[in-house]
């Protein structure tokens, strides 16, 4: 199992993510993930493809520090996750990673705006970055929503359950990006959208991440989307990445 084309991207001084000899198995002897080397530079956009069951979500969980690999090292912004206590990993993740999932990303009982603001309530660093312009977190959330085509204040005050799936995913994108995290992890965020909405959503996401300087790790089985990214790797069951 090998990491391909890793050398092609010029590594930044401190990569956002660096994996070395990472192996993860739910049951001993049957690894679902085996990554000899993988680096994501600051602002880099990485597409991770591969069929279901190939370990894509496991890779994201390992990068996010939710799963701890049996061997190898995982570094987030130069800090090794292995040496951290769970609470420290949680804090590091909350501060530096924005998450975006396939569906049901949002809390149904909060308004659109409150959902977007949520990461700033759990991370002081995210809050500080979001309010760097001297505005409140709500204003920053409204600005992000505006960039994603959800600028209507009446819509922002609605409960998320009243929105279409496409709108919900854009709200989730705004939430992942508030407070400019170093890394946005997107796990099949477009699979519930139709083809047109998919490309439009991806364009918006990429533009915003570029503006914020966030690196993106984008997981999808839809290889048509891969052209938009700086780099592309493909995982093959059981968890073998190919360039």
């Amino acid at each position: 199992m090998s990491a391909a084309s890793a050398a092609a991207a010029a590594p930044a001084p401190v990569p956002v993510v660096a994996l070395r000899d990472v192996r993860f198995a739910w049951r001993p002897g049957r690894p679902v993930l085996d990554v000899p080397a993988l680096e994501v530079a600051a602002g880099e956009r990485l597409f991770v493809g591969g069929p279901s069951g190939s370990g894509k979500s496991t890779l994201l969980a390992v990068i996010g520090g939710v799963l701890v690999p049996q061997s190898g090292t995982v570094e987030l912004l130069g800090r090794s996750l292995a040496g951290l206590r769970p609470a420290q990993r949680d804090a590091l993740r909350a501060e530096h990673i924005g998450f975006l999932f396939q569906l049901f990303n949002l809390l149904p009982y909060l308004t659109v705006l409150d959902n977007v603001v949520l990461p700033c309530r759990f991370s002081a660093a995210r809050r500080a970055r979001a309010t760097r312009g001297g505005r409140g977190v709500e204003a920053e959330a409204a600005r992000l929503l505006g960039q994603l085509g959800l600028g209507d204040p009446e819509l922002q005050a609605r409960r998320v359950t009243e929105l279409s799936i496409g709108q919900q995913q854009r709200v989730a994108a705004a939430r992942a990006m508030i407070g400019a995290p170093a890394l946005v992890i997107a796990d099949e965020p477009t699979s519930a959208l139709d083809a047109d909405a998919r490309m439009a959503f991806l364009d918006l996401l990429m533009a915003e991440c570029r503006a914020a300087g966030s690196a993106v790790i984008f997981v999808s089985h839809d290889t048509a989307l891969a052209a938009q990214f700086d780099r592309r790797i493909t995982l093959h069951a059981p968890g073998v990445p190919h360039g």
Binding site: F99, F104, L118
Partner: peptide, 9 residues
């Protein structure tokens, strides 16, 4: 979802 937006256990 709460965990994903930064809530700890």
């Amino acid at each position: 979802i709460l965990r994903a937006v930064g809530a700890r256990p």
